[in-house]
Simulated scan of single mutants.
Amino acid sequence: MHPHLKTMKTIQKQETIPRKISLPAFNPDHVLNMTDGTGIIQHALRNMPNRKEGYCTDDNSRALLLTVLAWKHDGYPDVLKLMSVYLSFIHYMQMEDGYFHNFMHYNKQIVMDGGSEDAYGRTIMALGYLIADGPSPLTIRTAEDIFLKAAPHMDKLISLRGIANSLIGLCMFVGSHHPLDGHLNRVGLLADKLIHEYRRYSDKKWCWFEEVLAYDNAMIPLALLHAYELTRQEEYLHTALEAISFLESKVFRDGILYPVGNNGWSSKGGSTALFDQQPLDAMAMVLFYQQAFHVTGDKKFLARGIRSWQWFMGENALQLPLYDKDTGGCSDGLQPDRVNENQGAESTIAFWIAYFAVSEMLDR
């Protein structure tokens, strides 16, 4: 039996759009709580900012993306001040060669660790969204300056997630304002890198881009959907849908999302770890389905996006909500017997990014 057929009943449960979708009101309280004049603080001790852990470019880029989505969706005035803080942080963390430092101590000392491709990719993605949907010409031009200074580093990326996040940002950049300035070629080069890795590792039983399902998995096929929207290369669409079908066979059980656990991941020929489950992975699934629904118009992707979103709200392995309606924060993950009490920046931002993605799907 084909491995995907075993999950057919599960997938069919995902096809049904839940009758009543009740989204909470946008509550930026915890995002504001975690943000100071420098940027958003990485970690929290429960709902208190943990200043001992300082700041990182990863989270400030995610936070910048969140402000763009919030502004685009409802024009929340408070987010413009936050947008300026996060963009300023990214600008400060950019090196002379265009790459980005990732960590900063609370005393504003930059950690000289050379940065990371993950942080670079997430920054390019956020800047691409800001350039496409920013609130003012001045803000957009500032984002363009940072983006263009960083862009040459895309050609040297090795990390799958660095490539994928950069590709999404590049597609937003090209699709919004810059269709003819040479960057479209770079879209093809980055997408083809992902296709190359898919061909290298996939077989009849393992349809994926590497030998392990780790974190942020759905971002990789999501990038191919963005590339398909610009280039109309059918292989990008086919590969993205084949890969997500495989991922679904690993992470959906009876219509409930079980993101791959970070205590062991899921390796080729091995088992899939159940815990700890991370908000970032649920967010990635929602973003994939948002783009798949946008590109194909197929309502099954709307249904699956909502199923993935409901993981945050309690439809998960423990039947416990990760979203805290009192604080506006989101827990750092689902452990074998409890919800992690800490409400860090990454988790809270992941929740709200997924929230605006679902809102956009429901508004269509």
Score class of each variant (00 low, 15 high):
Lys205Arg: 10
Glu211Tyr: 15
Gln233Glu: 15
Arg304Ala: 11
Gly175Ala: 12
Glu117His: 09
Tyr236Pro: 04
Lys193Ser: 03
Leu247Gly: 04
Asp216Ala: 11
Asn50Arg: 10
His177Asn: 09
Trp208Phe: 14
Ala143Thr: 02
Gln277Thr: 02
Leu213Asp: 07
Trp71Phe: 14
Asp133Pro: 01
Ile131Pro: 00
Pro135Ala: 14
Val339Lys: 01
Ile90Arg: 00
Ser88Cys: 06
Leu32Pro: 02
Glu53Tyr: 03
Ala243Val: 08
Gly115Cys: 07
Glu197Ile: 06
Ala25Met: 09
His177Val: 00
Asp254His: 09
His177Ser: 08
Met219Ala: 12
Tyr99Glu: 01
Leu65Ala: 14
Pro49His: 06
Gly134Trp: 08
Ala143Gly: 02
Lys268Trp: 08
Ser267Lys: 15
Tyr99Leu: 05
Ser245Cys: 15
Asp326Lys: 09
Leu257Ile: 09
Met1Arg: 12
Glu242Pro: 00
Phe312Asp: 03
Pro279Ala: 07
Cys56Val: 11
Ala143Trp: 01
Arg364His: 02
Glu117Ile: 10
Tyr355Arg: 04
Phe147Cys: 05
Met172Leu: 11
Ser266Trp: 15
Tyr120Arg: 08
Leu322Pro: 04
Phe173Asp: 00
Ala191Tyr: 04
Gly314Ser: 00
Thr123Arg: 00
Lys13Leu: 14
Thr239Gly: 06
Gly162His: 10
Arg186Gln: 13
Met34Trp: 02
Gly188Arg: 11
Asp145Pro: 00
Cys330Pro: 07
Tyr92Val: 10
Asp74Tyr: 09
Leu237Met: 15
Met8Thr: 13
Ala284Ile: 01
Tyr120Ala: 11
Met34Gln: 05
Gly162Ser: 11
Asn47Arg: 12
Leu237His: 13
Ile306Asn: 07
Thr239Ser: 05
Leu160Lys: 08
Gly169Thr: 06
Cys56Arg: 09
Pro24Cys: 13
Arg304Cys: 06
Lys205Pro: 02
Phe100Met: 02
Gln42Pro: 03
Gly37Met: 10
Met112Asn: 12
Gln335Gly: 06
Pro336Gly: 04
Ala243Asn: 00
Asn340Val: 04
Leu180Arg: 15
Gln12Tyr: 09
Ile131Glu: 08
Leu194Phe: 00
Met104Gln: 11
His30Thr: 05
Phe288Ile: 06
Ala164Phe: 05
Ala132Thr: 03
Thr327Arg: 08
Ala345Met: 10
Lys9Arg: 11
Gly188Gln: 12
Trp311Asp: 03
Ser116Ile: 07
